[in-house]
Amino acid sequence: MSSKIRLAWKLASLGFRVQLQFKGSFLLNRIAQVIAYGSSFGAIFILTYRIGGMAGWVWRELLFLMSFQLLSYSLGAAFCFVQFRELESNVRKGTFDLLLVKPAPAWLYIIFAKFNFDYIGHVCLALTLMAWSSIHLVDWNFITVLYLFAAILNSAALTASMLLMIGALSLFGIRVYYLYVIFFSVLEFTRYPIVIFPLLLQVTVVVLVPLAFMSYIPVAYLLDHPIPIVGPMGGVFVIFVGPLSICAATFVWHRGLVNYQGAGG
């Protein structure tokens, strides 16, 4: 285990030095991203501020929801987005083969060698807005703070696992580009209170593609808002979502490897 952590650290620090070589544009790019997210949050702010709220959520609560979603998305994506989106072309180019002759697990190499430090801008913006919006919203005590941390970790793990699983499908020869497009459009729903959507979509994001667990359910639980379909128990369930999704991702990844290597017979 400790050797894996040492390896992950080494890979990430090499990857960081590679990304640092383009540091001229790094800061500018981060600033531009922060402005873009700030602007689309600003649009929602104007909308809800003028109207007073949305489905019982006041604008501060909405801001908390949106920044929580941004945080868990960017943490998860830093580990698994670009890395596994590239898997398809790495399989085609044959560079993926090189990972299979090494003593380290291929997923570890993929995740950490290309660990994406670009999300630092997202994370800073999200943390600032979360702190600012939620300071008076929630009765912060040991339990709620602990829950918040657990929820962030689980949501990030859920996002990362979903991104990994989509990428792993390229080991079955599936064109995954289109699946990412659909994933990101469903991700759009997680920025808003899901209760405003048609029932069919609520079922989709709570049960089928459980993205509601990455933002709405933990935040609604903290803020005492209703959680559709699963009720308040959903809020408790959040802390099992991370481990469960990692199990699912591990399973899909190994099946993908078995299929790629042709060990299935």
């Binding site: 544009s25 500018l28 790019n29 600033i31 531009a32 873009a36 600003g42 649009a43």
Partner: peptide, 23 residues
């Protein structure tokens, strides 16, 4: 500016408020 990435995001930033779609 030598970075297309930042410029894409900057233009993206102007749209939600100034193009008057969602708001």
């Amino acid at each position: 500016l030598m970075t297309a990435f930042a410029i894409e995001w900057l233009l993206e930033a102007l749209m939600p408020i100034l193009a008057g779609i969602l708001v």
